[in-house]
Design a protein around this nucleic acid. Structure first.
Lengths: 219, 219
DNA sequence: CCGCCTATTATTAGGAC
DNA sequence: AGTCCTAATAATAGGCG
């Protein structure tokens, strides 16, 4: 600003920093007062001094409190709404993608399982009660395949194009808390459902060979 | 600043004010950022736009909330002290003005009451126990006059020149919490004392005619 | 640390488009 | 209203006492 153009970085020299701080804080407060006067706007400025416990408050602690209460009065009402507006659209889109992903997953799952059964268990009979070791092996193979698929699905999710925040306007009104909650919970639940060991194994415990045939081997 | 030195007052022209506001707010935020960077201090800036519901917040709503919470954390212990530091001088001055006002009020009160009694009750005897209706009427007249006076006093108070915030430095150290509290309470108490119905009527209930003569009719 | 000074940079008012 | 321009004012870094 003066004899030398100053670099915009922390002034390491202690005395110089303190001097600059005092000058500039004074200047800032003057600017704030001018802005407030010239344009008749409400504003407040809080500057913590270098190491000072008490900040300098403009225009006064009292007026600042008024401004701040006004800011705090609409925190949940507007700020959350704002957040919802920004994330709601994304969430909705995410839920839709999730739905597509699950659908595809089911299709792929059926196809892969079918192929796996065809290749891995060709000629072996699934009728009656199969041996536990054979079925455990099958479960592991299926699980492995599904893990691969889940990795691919996650990759697809990550690479899916998200709408930039600027493009998100207030068009999307939140319908009801219950609905929001349901939509919010959906993506997580989708992942939880896909633990193969959890839902596959029971079928191997009770002799579901006929059912497996009906489901996977019909083609 | 530029082609013309601007007067420090509300810009009446709408477009000019908005333009100035935009430029200066931008400048302020830049200054704030510079100050924060150069001196490594914590600060926040909140500026309500002209008519905007949502203020512009620097550095961000979140960071501002942090700064504000820090301000709120030491609420009664330090903030009151701070308020006292900034407003104490003004309060003191206000209390002095208040004292002058009360003194003048007493003088005016005596004078006006005397005139009222001279004009409204000329020739009627105030000795002995006057009729309740006559005294109630007198009380009402006195009350009305004092209401007028209080209005005038309020007007004087409002028009009294307050010292600008810039002139108030940290020269005034708070002496003790008790003393501060007393000085803070004084201005309000002064107004409360001036309810005529409260303190006038008792005199009409117990036959104070002689006292009234002594007080108001001696001239 | 504080105030004062001044060369220099930064901000901005007013206009033009 | 928004952008660019420019003259003019305002802010201030670095010295000095």
């Amino acid at each position: 600003m003066s004899r030398k153009k100053v670099k915009l970085q922390w002034i390491s020299n202690d005395a110089a920093r303190r001097a600059t701080f005092k000058k500039r804080r004074k200047g800032m407060i003057k600017k704030a007062a001018e802005l407030s006067t010239l344009c008749g706007v409400n504003a407040c400025l809080i500057v913590y001094g270098d190491g000072e416990q008490q900040p300098e408050i403009w225009p006064s602690a009292h007026d600042a409190a008024i401004v701040l209460s006004r800011l705090k009065r609409l925190p949940e009402m507007e700020q959350i709404k704002q957040m919802m507006n920004q994330e709601g659209f994304m969430r909705q889109r995410h839920a839709k993608l999730q739905e597509q992903v699950r659908k595809q997953e089911r299709e792929n799952g059926e196809l892969e399982t079918m192929l796996l059964l065809r290749h891995g268990l060709a000629g072996r009979s699934m009728h009656g009660v199969a041996s536990r070791s054979q079925l455990a092996n099958l479960a592991w193979l299926i699980e492995r395949k599904m893990c691969e698929m889940r990795r691919r699905i996650e990759s697809l999710r990550r690479s899916s194009v998200m709408p930039p925040p600027e493009a998100v306007k207030k068009e999307v009104a939140p319908a009801s808390p219950a609905l929001e909650a349901k939509e919010k919970k959906a993506p997580e639940a989708a992942t939880e459902e896909l633990q193969p060991q959890e839902w596959l194994l029971p079928f191997f415990e009770h002799g579901n060979g006929a059912w497996l045939d009906a489901c996977f081997l019909k083609n």
